[in-house]
Design a binder for these strands. Structure first.
Length: 173
DNA sequence: AAGAAGATTCGCT
DNA sequence: GCGAATCTTCTTA
């Protein structure tokens, strides 16, 4: 859920990737830095960073205070504020509004100012409640990383047209 | 102090 | 499918 002034933008999370403690591909692997300090805040905080000179990424922290770990939000199924998302994303195509982590952040107008926000509090960005049940959750390898390639730490709602990636194959099935 | 790599996206072929 | 765009951080000299 995202609140900008009087407007609300929201979507169902349909794709995530886990970056657990000790993962060499995770940003917390080499310890706390100025950039990644939000990862160590405790559970349920936002970790936002800028990458490739083009995109912001949004993570939800996932471990107790002092332990760096997070879950990357990779795709949303748009629910509220669709017209606003279309404006932010400069496209009218529903399935392109938040399919991919950089697009998701752009659709919700997320930048560094939201780094460290408590996602379980009354603020500009938070985790809401499910609007409906999730279909079967598929499992696959993570996208765009160069280490720990074999681990099945990407999760997505099977069959959803709002999920990113080449073929949404469920490696586990 | 300089260079390379990075949890990506977009436009063009 | 391929390469450019473009900023921040970490590594190496």
């Amino acid at each position: 859920m995202r609140k900008i002034g009087r407007n609300r933008i929201s979507g169902r999370i349909v794709e995530t990737e886990a970056y657990p403690p000790g993962d060499p591909s995770g940003h917390a692997y080499r310890g706390r830095t100025v950039r990644n300090q939000s990862l160590f805040l405790g559970r349920g905080f936002a970790y936002v960073y800028f990458i490739y000179g083009t995109s912001y990424m949004l993570n939800v922290t996932a471990e107790e205070t002092g332990i760096g770990a997070g879950v990357l939000l990779r795709a949303l199924e748009p629910i509220d504020g669709i017209n606003l998302m279309k404006r932010f994303r400069k496209t009218d195509k529903l399935t392109d509004l938040a399919r991919g982590p950089g697009r998701l952040a752009a659709a919700l107008q997320i930048d560094r100012r939201l780094d460290g926000v408590d996602l379980c509090a009354n603020g500009p960005l938070w985790l809401g409640t499910a609007v409906r049940e999730t279909a079967h959750i598929g499992t696959a390898v993570r996208i765009g990383i160069t280490r720990e390639l074999g681990r099945l730490l990407r999760f997505f709602e099977a069959g959803s047209p709002f999920v990113s990636g080449p073929a949404q194959r469920d490696k586990k099935s």
